[in-house]
Design a protein around this nucleic acid. Structure first.
Lengths: 355, 355
DNA sequence: GTGAAAGCGCTAACAC
DNA sequence: GTGTTAGCGCTTTCAC
């Protein structure tokens, strides 16, 4: 009803339109548009006057109209399996900050594991309100990738596998190798591995790659892998704490070192060991992956995946692609992970035969 | 250049338009629009045929066009100071999931402390591409709130203070009171408080409210607050760990309990105590706030802010407002925090005079 | 360098 | 119930 009354007065004091700016400077909307978007020629003088007028009126172009007319939307999608886990939240933080600074919006698509996978990948792509998308730790099917490409949406992958799209990976396999080798070089022969759950087919192929790195390093060194030292947890502190507590409960079967696929799990492992009266790192060395702040507290040795930086980098890549209008198919950048040696790993020595 | 060539062929195989669906079923675009949006009368029969045709063609309405024409955009903004902190990430998770499930987009605005405050609050509001916004832990100035209202954007606040907008708060003051009282009832007289940094003027007024709760509880109980027991940290594990380690270094001045404004800090405090050789909870009781998973591991007593649920609830509130077209000015819902007593708080007893 | 005019793809009055 | 007709507010040829 109110709306009806207002419509008589016609736009009582709605936001200013391009038209308003145009008439204020006595120019056509076309020129104003060119001046403000920077596309097309405008004389420096007019440009300045237009900008001044726009500012004075507080004019900001309507995204919807602009997007509809131009096909560009200054909106970039970020697709990830979780947002409430440190690694993902941090990557997201990096992406979002970069985009915001560049004047882009970040549209968040939280798949929640696999819950929304179907609808998100179908929906958001089809509606084409996105200029580009960053896909974090997801293994897209060829069909899905192709759909996105054919919709003309530049993609960049982070740590997942994305056939044909530029990907920023950290080399999970390599990280697994290095972490394990570090422990081996310290003299450890019996090393436990705590990984994440087996990947649900299509998501985050990270844990299994690390596990493969672990296995390869062990076999290269000629070390046996004990079945019972192969733990599966959920990337969380709590899960690992419990698992490791069980594992260490039998002294004669104890590993001397543990490699966890996340810092949270590594920390859990350490605290479990401590609670069992073990001395860290004398009785148990531990190494994690992530450089989660919690690890820094204690001095956990870890492999930094540089989460935030990778997010930033992915966003920049996308932004650059948007400018050059190239899709940049298939470039693959490997961000080498950064090794951080700290005090939770120690040479095997004083504890060759645990009490 | 390619575009130019293609334009000859005219939409070689671009996504289907409303028009395509219309001609496929031999109806006008208006009817198709009505059928698909559910706004306006359509006979059940035609509706079904239209839906079938749309599905078959893989038609999905262009958001931009639809938004421009209707003024609605199925896009809701989420403004928060950080995304890489557990509480915020979890709230965000709750909001985003709910919105996604309802077919809405979540546009993320990460202020990064105060970095992007200005531009976000100005920009995203002016462009009006948002149907509504959830504002987490932010203290908006009256001017800012008014701007948002006058732009017709329904708001809901979570845990911040938002004059005139519905707010979901957890009662930080009350949480502070309860946590402190819990410790007092256990017989503790010397209680330390670890809070966050003083709020940067306009952000997240949560730490100070908890501190006030603490102070009030103490003074009500007639207990003195020692200046040196009032710690300021950064909500992180590490910060608290160090602070508390310093605090506990002098045995004769030791508090017997500590109330931390976050579980991460409480956990840091506990581990600091342990590393100093103290027994928890015999020598030091600790209570936190958040129900961060890390606390569950050890049995940290805490006050659950129900982060995820509050996010969910905020999103629902917004969605409901959008339907009823009311702005719901000023309703204030208090989600009472949930007390979780666990093993890290104990009656003062065996440790009346610490060694 | 600038303006006129034709859309972008959809929704919303309003007639029928 | 359904079709017709105007736009939503901007961008972009295309002339000038």
């Amino acid at each position: 009803m109110i709306a009806r009354e207002l419509s008589a007065t016609r736009r009582p004091q709605g936001p200013p339109r391009l038209k308003d700016v145009a008439s204020k400077v006595g120019m056509s909307t076309a020129t104003v548009s060119r001046a403000l978007t920077g596309r097309g020629p405008v004389s420096p003088g007019t440009k300045r006057r237009i900008e001044a007028a726009a500012k004075e009126l507080g004019f900001v172009a309507s995204y919807h109209a602009s997007s509809l007319a131009s096909g560009r939307s200054r909106n970039i999608g970020v697709v990830l399996p979780y947002v409430d886990r440190w690694f993902f939240a941090t990557v997201l933080d990096g992406i979002a900050s970069t985009l915001t600074a560049a004047g882009y919006d970040a549209a968040l698509y939280n798949l929640q594991g696999e819950n929304f996978r179907e609808s998100v990948l179908t929906d958001f792509l089809l509606r084409k309100r996105l200029d580009a998308a960053a896909v974090v730790s997801l293994r897209l099917t060829p069909g899905e990738t192709e759909q996105l490409f054919s919709a003309g949406i530049p993609l960049v992958g982070i740590g997942g596998s994305l056939e044909g799209a530029p990907t920023i990976s950290v080399g999970d396999l390599n990280a697994g190798l290095r972490a394990t080798n570090h422990l081996i070089q310290l003299g450890h022969c019996r090393i436990a591995f705590i990984g994440g759950p087996p990947e649900a087919g299509r998501s985050f192929p990270m844990s299994s790659d690390r596990r493969r790195g672990f296995e390869r390093a062990m076999s290269t060194a000629g070390l046996p892998i004990h079945e019972r030292d192969q733990l599966v947890s959920d990337f969380t502190f709590l899960g690992a704490y419990q698992q490791v507590k069980n594992l260490l409960a039998e002294p004669e079967q104890r590993p001397t070192a543990v490699f966890a696929a996340s810092d949270e799990m590594a920390t859990g492992a350490i605290l479990a060991a401590r609670d069992l009266g073990l001395d860290v790192p004398r009785d148990l060395s531990a190494i994690g992956i992530d450089a989660h702040p919690i690890g820094g507290t204690f001095g956990l040795t870890t492999i930094d995946r540089r989460a935030r930086r990778r997010g930033t980098h992915a966003a920049q890549l996308l932004l650059r692609q948007l400018v050059s209008r190239g899709t940049g198919h298939g470039d693959h950048e490997l961000h080498r992970a950064h090794f951080i040696a700290r005090s939770w790993t120690a040479p095997l020595g004083s504890n060759s035969s645990p009490a």
